[in-house]
Simulated assay, not measured.
Amino acid sequence: MNFSSKRKTSNLVLLIASFVIVSLILWNTNSFFKKFKEEERHKMEIWATAQSELLQSSEDRDLGNLHVKIFQNNTSTPMILVNKDGSTKTNNIPEEEAQDTNYIKSRIARFGAENTPISIDYKGEHLATLYYGNSEVLNKLKYYPIALMLIIFLFGAVIFFFFKTNKASEQNKLWAGMAKETAHQIGTPLTSLLGWSELLKAEEINPEISQEIEKDITRLQTITERFSKIGSLPKLEKKDIVAETKCAYEYLKLRSSKLIHFTFDSKVTQLPVLLNSSLYNWTIENLVKNGIDAMKGKGSISIEIVPEGRYVNVLVSDTGHGIPKSDYQTIFNPGVTSKKRGWGLGLSLVKRIVEEYHKGRIKVLTSSKEGTVMQISLKVNP
């Protein structure tokens, strides 16, 4: 049995044990409620018996004292005694309310629904009817299972979110581990390429070939640096966001199809922001490549820098097929992609770079059949 199977088995056992415990608590609470209710009815029957004796033997002084004691002993259960002549007598009901005929009628109906009325008879003659409600303790106990279920629900929700967060954390560690391993694997042939490049220079081969090889090597070094920084806190430095964005723009423009029309516009000449150049350029690259894919390799890509108070917005626009409004948030989740080939990690990494590493925000500003505008917001660091 592997670790994953053991964890699933443990979770299942924990779930079953929790269900059994909750069921036992609810069953025990229900049993206690019923027993308490039966005891209250027993007390009411004793009171009704004493009342019956009192009504028939009003001259018996001792019996009257017994009735008074029993009557005074009940300080929690509200009750209404309806005599055969229609008159009423109340106990544990506020005096002002006891004087209200309509209130007494409504209470009689309510008490009759809560508990079966007790008929007070003596030697076959009906003397009165006792209506009684649930005591304050019984009413509180009645809502105890609901409160318990609410607590169990909240507890279950906490457990669910804990496992969900734990799973997401494990996935993040997995992606970070894969990225670092990729960077490590690229490092070996990259070192070899550097050696071959120097050898080509020494052999005085066409300089243009050496220059292009060096560009590709530099590119591979950049990719390696990007992947190596995933999962660790990157170093941020004060950089000019206009220059950094334009650098990424120029690189992508030179290496993209001539069918893509690029435009760049900035409302300021320079603006200092705390950035990690490598990761920021990767972010712009991902957004532009997503836009190119959405346009199927033909259309317009626009990058615009717009200051807004203490923040600066970087807008990346394309003329692709657009994103449904319902997918504005989910497109940033790992594994979500509209491409037939792809792992759905690009925008997930972009979100992590912008929001976790640079403490900024990224969102779909607008999207329609005419195109999409993605907005990155970063805090200006003067």
Rank of each mutant, 00 (worst) to 15 (best):
G320M: 06
K296V: 01
Y122K: 10
S348G: 09
L24F: 10
E225Q: 14
S368E: 06
V68M: 12
Q72W: 09
D293G: 04
S300F: 11
V242F: 08
T337V: 09
G86F: 00
L15T: 09
L174M: 08
W47D: 04
F36N: 15
R61P: 00
S300Q: 14
F71E: 00
E38C: 04
G320D: 05
L15D: 09
R255A: 04
N74C: 04
S4R: 15
Y328H: 15
I118M: 09
N281V: 03
K339R: 13
K289Q: 09
V314W: 01
Y251W: 07
L26N: 12
S106V: 11
P272D: 04
D265G: 03
T245R: 01
N83G: 09
M178A: 10
E356P: 00
A168V: 07
L233M: 15
V20A: 08
W175N: 10
G346H: 08
L365P: 00
I21E: 12
K359S: 11
T77V: 02
E285H: 02
N381W: 11
S368G: 13
N73W: 06
Y132T: 01
T263S: 11
T269S: 10
R41A: 09
L54C: 01
Q375M: 13
A248Y: 01
Y328I: 11
L259W: 02
F36R: 15
K359C: 05
S348P: 06
Y249A: 07
N333R: 05
H261V: 09
S377R: 05
G231V: 15
I120Y: 02
S169F: 02
S377Y: 02
L24N: 13
S197C: 06
F36W: 14
F111N: 11
E125Q: 12
I118D: 00
V364Q: 03
E237P: 11
V354M: 01
V306F: 05
I217G: 05
T245L: 02
S169W: 05
G195F: 06
F163V: 03
A128T: 06
L365N: 13
I70W: 05
N115G: 03
L233Q: 15
F163E: 08
E38D: 14
W282E: 14
E114I: 08
S5L: 13
W343M: 14
T165L: 07
S338H: 12
M1I: 01
R61L: 14
L130I: 05
L130V: 11
P334L: 06
L347F: 03
N290F: 02
L138N: 12
T75A: 06
T263I: 05
V82T: 05
M178N: 10
E203N: 10
G291T: 15
E59H: 07
G371S: 04
N313G: 03
P307R: 00
T129G: 03
F3A: 14
S368A: 10
L130E: 00
E97M: 11
L275G: 05
L347Y: 00
V380Y: 01
S228N: 15
L127I: 08
I376T: 08
S52V: 08
S52L: 08
I209E: 01
N28W: 13
H261E: 11
Y357V: 03
E96F: 05
L15V: 03
H126Q: 03
R110S: 13
I230D: 13
T191N: 13
Q185P: 00
T29K: 10
K253I: 04
E250Y: 01
E136A: 10
A128D: 06
N74R: 09
P78S: 07
I146N: 13
K298G: 05
V380A: 00
K8P: 01
I305K: 08
